[in-house]
Design a protein around this nucleic acid. Sequence first.
RNA 1: GCCCCCGUAGCUCAGCUGGCAGAGCAGGCGACUUUUAAUCGCGAGGUCGAAGGUUCGAGUCCUUCCGGGGGUACCA
Length: 497
Amino acid sequence: MFARKVPPMDELMAQRVAKVEALREAGVDPYPTRAARTHTSAEVIAMVEALPEGATEAEGIVVDVAGRIVARRDMGKATFIDILDGHGRLQVLLRQNTLENYDTLKNTDLGDFVGFRGTPIRTRTGQPTVQAATWTMLAKALHAPPEKYHGLADSEQRQRRRYLDLMANEETRRVFTVRSRVIASIRRFLDARGFLEVETPILQESESGAAARPFLTHFNAIDEQRVLRISLELHLKRLVIGGFERVYEIGRNFRNEGMSFKHNPEFTMMETYEAYADYLKVAEMAEQMVSNAALEVLGTTKITFRDHEIDLAPPWRRITFNDALMEYAELDLTAFPNAESLRAELRRRGVDAPVTAGYGKLCDEAMSHYVEPNLIQPTFLLDYPVELSPLAKRKPGNPRMVERFECFVAGFECGNAYTELNDPIEQRQRFEAQLDLKAAGDDEVELVDDDFLFALEHGMPPTGGFGMGIDRLVMLLTGQSSIREVILFPPMKSLKE
RNA sequence: GCCCCCGUAGCUCAGCUGGCAGAGCAGGCGACUUUUAAUCGCGAGGUCGAAGGUUCGAGUCCUUCCGGGGGUACCA
């Protein structure tokens, strides 16, 4: 099916090219520069539905409508054409005795963009319709659209040629409309709370703010290597240091790692930083932001994901990391206070516990194995082991734990927050502890960032930070079980010619 | 990475135990002035993902490769 990148001209295409020529010979521009449109499909339908009882025509009213031909029912001296515009589908009735140049309709095909001028009517069956007096070619299509009833099903083609998916499948249009509106809702939410939206570099000297393999590139003008950012965190904190009290960024992160239903190498992250807030205040904001987006975009906080009925209305459940392990695994972390004892216990239970994993990683392993799949209703998991969170502030009175939460919905993580570590001397020590982990064989660690430490040494107020994977949120709100279904152009292997 | 499944007409899909490559939609021609997955008639349309192998004979069996999906491992 994809043996060629671009198939050669076939018979169907040749027929359409011939129609282009036929139009030109008849003095019709198949690609005119301008289009007249006075009404969308939705507006025409509303107009007809507002007609008084018994009326079959909006007398004296003339509308110009435009869209792509998605269906045609030719009945000889009358033809019905369905057009699709950005607001829906609209039926157009063309009759030989009311349309000029009825015979030129033979040069139209499914997929063409056309315009019609006519009068809104109600058909015998009550369907809002435009009875056309004239028609105009707006843009001739040289290929047939996908099948009208089944749509486009082949997932490869749907992703490689998203335009075909969009023109054929209503559900795809819905998913990406929701995505856009969710992001707009989040922006409104944060803007209304006094957050400043900022942009920070994607090309960076070295990766920071998370532990992940970066994509590499080369910066020609200064002849240096750059990495694509894996996180927004440290640049946004620099802005808090500078005095912006509430900042956020919504942007692409890049991690040169595996793909799965919830991982894509480039993904959209939203991070917020709020001075004088802590992680508990951030948690309240997070549940408000997500439930608000659901309400604004879907009209409800109740969603269905993989047969789970989920309610995003706040307050979300709160449980500590340790209590969750007690509840779901009957594992008491205080009884296994170091890497050796915890590794032995996990192995006794048959949980994967590699020798290179430090204490934090092992805790994470246990949580992922026992707890995460059970967190279906929205849940904040609170207070993480310090080893797992080098940028988070310790809990007062418990130096082994940090003030951090991750939020889980439908059994996967969709957000992460800390009370930010703002002690520059401790931050340096915590970075260096990461280096020790690396020396012990864990290659997924946070790197020391001296420039960030220098910034932190100038003083950062107590701050609550939050990160949320936008793609995952959109998965939840659209019921899509693969991240690729909420990304317009997911990465694909290139086709060999 | 590894495991499983899939790839047949522009699109959606059949094709049984190896024996003449099919249907619907779209497209072409014809009929039909209120249809809506319109209907009816006639024709047309194929590198069966690619290459090799087994066989008298391969869409079908075997091997390798290409592309996709699902699962699994690591990262959000």
